[in-house]
Design a protein around this nucleic acid. Structure first.
Lengths: 191, 191, 191, 191
DNA sequence: AATGAATGAGTATTCATTCAT
DNA sequence: CATGAATGAATACTCATTCAT
């Protein structure tokens, strides 16, 4: 079929609108409208507006976490190369899902306890994977050893998303940006 | 009188509640209640709920921006020292204003285009100040020159806030953390 | 087949759910579910939720009215005996159809004028039949004559259902209760 | 003031509409409209539509229960006289509050567990009071003693409300009706 | 300055009903 | 006969804001 399923259309419409206008400023009616379905149809596929929002967020983060985890287990790559891949994965996520990044941004403030915990878990999973890479690098002499692996992982992941700033970074040059960030993280800024 | 002014009490109540519950889940009635005033009184001191929210956010960010700007102009310090101060300032802001940090997090997206732009401006001011420090450091040979000052500034500021993760960082040891971050930024993680 | 027809299953499910939860708190989806059929199927057998509800109510009341009418025409019984039978019929209806009694209770008011009138009519038919018995009794000297037959009939029918109180009456002893009520109605409570 | 309070107006409007159309067929908007206030005002005075409905029901039943209880304790009246008063009180309640009677009718089917229990309690209180009168009458030889006082009380109260039928009883002649019912209850219908 | 009663626009959610298959 | 995806009208309730006192 060329025609997308109504559920898929609802998800796309949600991503677009939530990102553009924020969760609270987007109505279920608007989403249905944008997706070209009736309001009631939203509730045929999703139990609530919250579930719709968080379902999207969680699925995307899980997807990138999976990719990172995958990267960790590769044996024919150095730790440095793996960190490079992590950066590239994140930047590509940002590039391909500008709207979702915005949604994740917003989600950092929790509408509900349940989802907040879920988000914490997801972040922990990501950090954990990167920490494994770091440990590997520390063990084989690629990385400095005077900093705890987990703290380093936290810094790395944080600096990628923290430094992601649409008004500064033009994300059409992912490779370039990856090199830049990796360069700073590896060598620092001192002359 | 030791009794705080009603306006001050309203601001404190707002910070507490907005941070705990988020903007949309906090009602004006709750704020008035927490502050011990009548609902109508809120509107004597503030024109709207939004103004109350943003007034707080903006004032705090402006305050730290001022401090950074101040730091820039000091002449008896190296650029590296200045960057260290910037990190220390940020971490202290986080430490002293956990609630406000949460608010800023939320505000990175929330209610309406106007304020989003305002936030972008504020961020730009901060980056601008740090970029001046960086340029200074590049000119006097402290920092690498193959990276644009603004991009570097963006990375520095971003990595501080991005790596700020309450569940990992215990912010009671600001000096220690400052050294850690500064160390990574300056020297990188490569062995 | 031992398997009941879908229509029958729908009726049974409706009685159960309407009685347990009331008309407005029972959804067509629930009924279909309870009956083990698809939602759409309900509409093959019944034109609407209302029709389903009222169809049940009306059929039961009509059935008891028929029995009462039947009773009236018997010629080998005294009026007193006939009244006794009416009481017994009612109590047995209550006993066997607790759920339906609840439904009738609710229906004494519920959805829309049309059905309210229908209920009035049904009640009128019942009263009319009993009134015939009363008249008979008045004519042959069994009952007092200073009270209009219809008013008496109304009292009799009303006192049966009005005094029906599940928390007081244990309806397992229908004969006993019949005697009790008949006794009071006939002889009164004065010593 | 000639102008009734908004709360009072809301109560009156609710009684009217709930009785005319039933609980589920009456919208909060209609009530507000009928009372001449804004929709939001309903929620200033009442927490919910349910509370509004049940608040009315309960308060009226409590009021008549109080009157009955009062009657019980009078010492210069015979039990028969007291029963007469109970009948008169009920009929007057019906007369003055035709709408409320309808509401009580409807309430016999519970929207919520809490209120259902409350209703049971209220009925129990009424029966209890009447049972006291009956006992009194049994002790001083006014009433037959072969029937349990509580069962008799249940019958009496039940027969009054059960036999209340707007299409038969014209409630403008309360005294007459009171005598009629009292007469039947006391002496029965046997010639 | 301060109050709090009153407002009414705004919205998520439900559910009887339809109809293409 | 039977299904269940899809519809959209209907509605209780919230809450920022106003204003007479």
């Amino acid at each position: 079929m060329v025609e997308k399923s109504k559920k898929e259309r609802l998800i796309q419409a949600s991503i677009k609108l939530f990102a553009q206008q924020g969760y609270h400023n987007t109505t279920v009616a608007e989403i249905a409208d944008e997706a070209g379905v009736a309001k009631g149809t939203v509730y045929w596929y999703f139990n609530s507006k919250e579930e719709l929002f968080w379902g999207i967020i969680v699925s995307r983060i899980e997807s990138i976490n999976e990719k990172i985890t995958e990267e960790v287990s590769k044996i024919n790559k150095t730790a440095i190369e793996k960190i490079g891949t992590v950066i590239r994965l994140q930047l590509n996520l940002f590039k391909d899902n500008k709207n979702i990044v915005k949604m994740i941004h917003e989600s950092s403030f929790s509408p509900g306890e349940n989802f907040y915990k879920k988000m914490q878990q997801l972040r922990a999973i990501g950090i954990n994977s990167v920490a494994k890479i770091v440990k590997e690098g520390q063990e084989n002499g690629e990385f400095v050893v005077d900093i705890e692996a987990e703290e380093l992982a936290n810094f790395i992941l944080g600096s990628i998303s923290g430094s992601y700033n649409p008004s500064v970074y033009k994300l059409d040059k992912v490779e370039e940006k990856t090199d830049l960030i990796l360069n700073i993280i590896l060598n620092g800024v001192k002359a």
